[in-house]
Design a protein around this nucleic acid. Structure first.
Length: 900
DNA sequence: GCAAGGTC
């Protein structure tokens, strides 16, 4: 070929900027001519060049991403033109859309006079697919074209010259995989979207979506699993039962500093057990150092950067949204500062010239010196970065491709930072406690990677066998908390882990949730599903279909990979996938009632019968007495169990779980005559007969306001439908605290300090059953006769002491529980009903028997101990307080002032 | 009016 006449070569890039870069690099900016094409964005560059000795007249132009779109044939385009199920088989075709026709014409025009076509599309599956679109357009007008593919990963001279001198063939398998993906996405998306939109849009008043004429309840194999992540986390939070736990903390002031030792048992959920162990420690409180360990630890630098990690780190360190990050990265790529920013790869190949990359950085004023040290063989600092195990075989990890003196926050090659951790273990009465401190010995890569911190903390010196008396020894309590709502970084992690979307599209799917009114994002970038989003997921979940789970996409992705590797044929994958999805579609349509039911939980039927105008029928039960800001509504969780929850969730977490034996429940327009503050709407319950005792009527018109003994009894007998939290469970369960404590607020008296099971008002003040069969006595206000509630004092002098308070707002009656006990002969309901485990524990302690007892203080037989112990078996008196109002009697998750 | 994926 060498020495022949010049040939004309048409080079096509994926976007105009790449065409320009390729042309500039190959022409070395000598004799480069530019002319307009038919599309105003896609210029044509011309210059002379020699490929392996063959002189070429090079034309370089571009497309803008995909040139073609897949669409249904005309007669299936209109929404009502066919049954949506037909979309699984309806003929489809690939067409150049109208707005790409100019580009198509330019390609045709230039291809007619060329001998070669060189494809400079991005080196990934989509790029390969676009390459075949370009081939189709060009070969239609010139079937003699010689087709070549250029493989490059960065717009730098070395890569571009190397690519053009080593042209290869395009990979049809890659393109086939994308064809299959496109067809499956189109058929599933269109069929399900039309189905659920036409089914639900007009059937309900979907108030959250504004102008509902344009509402589309879309379904997509990426957007729905993304919504699924949001809803699943929301459900997890909603079903979390706050659970109290106890732990022993020990501190020691040695004179050289204070060490805080934590209990190696961690948190105990059994109060009695914790008290017994605490008591042992207090009685035999000398601590013995049993182990002092000093260990060198290493903190490794992060793996080389891929797109998701770039987005997550930018979100974490710079609070940049994923969308903005990719925009900036694209700019840097186009300016030649970094390699291609859309890559899954997080390990460098052997071919990458890492030394060359670092050499470029030697002049940098911040990390230049570090780069020089890395390159100095005498320093012994060089280490090839360890990979994260991902390689898309198309692009290297994102790395700098040329020097910049400006602020750029990444480095490539790092040594781990070195630290020394000292761990001290002590033994008190057989219980182990430990503490640790860290000293950083060598910062190494942390010197240049300034975003990661590795704090040091010092502790005094201890020797094995040494004994000391703890300065404080406290039994502290806490409450398990639900996980937070998903943040944008969390969501990206979920999507990445499950393979939802591509690096370039993940942020689009997240945005789609907002656009479709499926979810909202708050100021902290945390996502909450809307009623609409939750209802749709719930509907499919109730059908038993995991269409909102990532499995379907994962399966498809797996199949696509097989196609791209030539292991499976496109046609067979398409046939199997679509067959499965079609039967799933038919099943979903058969079970559409589930979708209706789920929507009914949240929305009124649009042709509904109206009902009581004062409240939304079928929903509102009462005003939330906790936040006093939102309504409490009857809802079902995803397991079908009923609860009455505050609409202010997640800011307000007030929830009343109802018996697990309910088959059906509906809020009526009847108001309770006795519960205040009203109105409290009665709920018509239908219980599953086999799950309740025979003497109860399965049909019951009940009230959650506090007056309904039958409801309380069935709750106790049947338990609630609240999901048991997976976290923080699994220790012993002998204590009553581990009973049915799903409510943040007691069902019966709306107090925060006990569960409905322990509610004194049910014994003391129940209207319908003043005297229970057990013979326990009640207590009513001696002024007005209204039933009293039992509360816990929080004043300095009486912290933890219980008192009765009249419920009537006009009456100021008040009496200490312990003084009432003595009047009533010490057999009060309150005494027997509250915290029985604590009572048992406190029996070891002479003194008032008020629930949890009062613990061990100075002067209670502990005189041999010189240190001051904080009494701890009463109400929580550690430094932990509600961070909202500072009250130590509760935590912020149940704070009545929250959101005030 | 529908998907996801390129890109402007």
């Amino acid at each position: 070929m060498a020495g022949g006449r010049p040939i004309t070569v048409l080079n096509v890039a994926e976007k105009p900027s790449v065409a320009k870069s390729v042309a500039t690099i190959l022409s070395r900016n000598q004799g480069l001519r530019v002319r307009e094409g038919r599309s105003r964005y896609n210029k044509i560059f011309e210059f002379n060049y020699a490929i392996r000795g063959q002189s070429c007249n090079m034309l370089v132009t571009s497309v803008t991403g995909h040139l073609m779109e897949l669409e249904f044939e005309e007669r299936y385009r209109k929404w009502h033109s066919c049954d949506p199920v037909e979309l699984f088989n309806a003929p489809v075709r690939k067409l150049v859309p109208e707005d790409k026709m100019d580009i198509k014409r330019t390609l045709e025009q230039e291809a007619r006079r060329c001998q070669w076509l060189v494809l400079w599309l991005d080196c990934d599956r989509e790029g390969e697919n676009i390459a075949f679109e370009v081939v189709e357009v060009c070969t239609t007008v010139n079937r003699h074209l010689n087709i070549k593919r250029a493989h490059f990963s960065a717009l730098i001279e070395r890569d571009i010259h190397e690519a053009v001198q080593n042209l290869v063939q395009p990979n049809k398998y890659f393109a086939d995989a994308v064809d299959a993906r496109q067809e499956i996405d189109l058929r599933i998306g269109a069929s399900f979207t039309r189905f659920q939109t036409m089914l639900l849009k007009d059937a309900f008043n979907i108030d959250s979506v504004g102008d509902d004429r344009n509402v589309v309840l879309s379904y997509g194999p990426c957007q729905f699993p993304t919504l699924g992540f949001v809803v699943e986390r929301y459900w997890e939070i909603q079903s979390h039962e706050p659970e109290e736990f106890w732990t022993i903390n020990c501190s020691h002031n040695s004179g050289d500093g204070i060490s805080t030792f934590s209990w190696t048992r961690g948190n105990l959920f059994d109060y009695t057990c914790a008290v017994v162990l605490y008591e042992m420690c207090v009685e035999e409180s000398t601590a013995t150092v049993v182990n002092v360990r000093r260990q060198e630890t290493l903190k490794y630098p992060p793996h080389p950067l891929n797109t998701i990690e770039l987005e997550k780190r930018a979100s974490r360190y710079f609070r940049m949204s994923s969308e903005h990050t990719m925009k900036v990265a694209e700019d840097l790529y186009q300016a030649g500062f970094i390699s291609y920013p859309r890559t899954e790869t997080d390990c460098f190949s052997q071919r990458t010239d890492l030394h060359g990359i670092v050499q470029e950085q030697q002049e940098h004023q911040i990390w230049g010196a570090y780069a020089q040290r890395l390159l100095d063989p005498g320093s012994g600092l060089w280490r090839n970065p360890s990979g994260g195990g991902h390689d898309d075989k198309a692009h290297p990890p994102i790395h700098p491709t040329k020097f910049s003196a400006g602020e750029r926050g990444w480095s490539q090659d790092h040594h781990p930072a070195v630290g020394a951790v000292t761990t001290v273990e002590i033994d008190i009465a057989g219980e182990l406690f430990s503490t640790s401190g860290r000293m950083i010995l060598a910062r190494n890569y942390l010197d240049v990677y300034r975003f990661e911190s590795w704090g040091g903390s010092t502790i005094p010196t201890y020797a094995s066998g040494q004994q000391f008396v703890p300065t404080t020894l406290t039994l502290d309590s806490g409450v398990t908390r639900p996980p937070p709502l998903l943040s944008e970084a969390d969501l990206l992690s979920c999507m990445d882990k499950e393979g939802i979307g591509t690096d370039a599209t993940m942020h689009d799917h997240i945005k789609k949730l907002l656009d479709r009114f499926y979810a909202t994002k708050d100021a902290n970038t945390r996502f909450t599903p809307t009623n609409l989003g939750e209802a749709l997921v719930m509907g499919y979940d109730d059908m038993g279909y995991k269409l909102w789970k990532p499995h379907l996409r994962a399966l498809m992705e797996h199949e696509m990979k097989a196609v791209s590797e030539g292991i499976k044929r496109k046609d067979e994958v398409l046939a199997t996938c679509l067959q499965q999805m079609k039967s799933c579609f038919l099943d979903a349509r058969f079970n559409k009632q589930k979708l209706f039911e789920a929507m009914e939980v949240f929305f009124e039927r649009s042709n509904g019968s109206g009902g009581d105008e004062n409240h939304a029928v079928g929903e509102v039960v009462q005003r939330c007495r906790l936040c006093q800001d939102s309504d409490m509504v009857l809802k079902r969780n995803r397991d079908g169990n009923y609860m009455v929850g505050c609409l202010g969730f997640p800011q307000c977490r007030n929830v009343v779980w109802l018996p697990g034996s309910i088959a059906e429940a509906a809020v009526t327009s009847n108001r309770c005559n006795s519960c205040t503050p009203g109105p409290v709407y009665l709920i018509q319950f239908k219980f599953r007969q086999l799950e309740i005792p025979p003497n109860y009527n399965p049909n019951h018109l009940g009230c959650i306001g506090g007056c309904d003994d039958i409801l309380r009894q069935l709750t106790e007998i049947c338990g609630t439908g609240s999901r048991i939290s997976a976290r923080g469970r699994g220790t012993s369960s002998s204590s009553v605290q581990r009973g049915n404590t799903a409510q943040s607020v007691c069902v019966f008296c709306q107090q925060l300090d006990h569960s409905s099971n322990d509610c004194p008002s049910q014994v003391v003040g129940s209207r319908s059953a003043r005297h229970r069969q057990t013979g326990e006595s009640s207590f009513s206000c001696s002024n007005c006769g209204t039933p009293c509630v039992l509360r816990t004092a929080n004043t300095t002098n009486n912290r933890g002491r219980k008192f009765y308070k009249c419920q009537s707002q006009e009456c100021n009656f008040f009496a200490w529980e312990d003084s009432v006990d003595s009047v009533n002969g010490g057999n009060s309901a309150a005494q027997s009903n509250i915290r029985s485990s604590a009572s048992a524990a406190s029996n070891t302690n002479p003194g008032r028997n008020t629930g949890r007892g009062r613990g061990w203080g100075q002067g209670q037989g502990q005189g041999q101990i010189a240190a001051t112990f904080v009494s701890a078996t009463g109400e929580p008196i550690s430094d932990r307080r509600c961070f909202v109002c500072g009250d130590p009697s509760h935590f912020a998750n149940v704070c009545p002032n929250r959101g005030a």
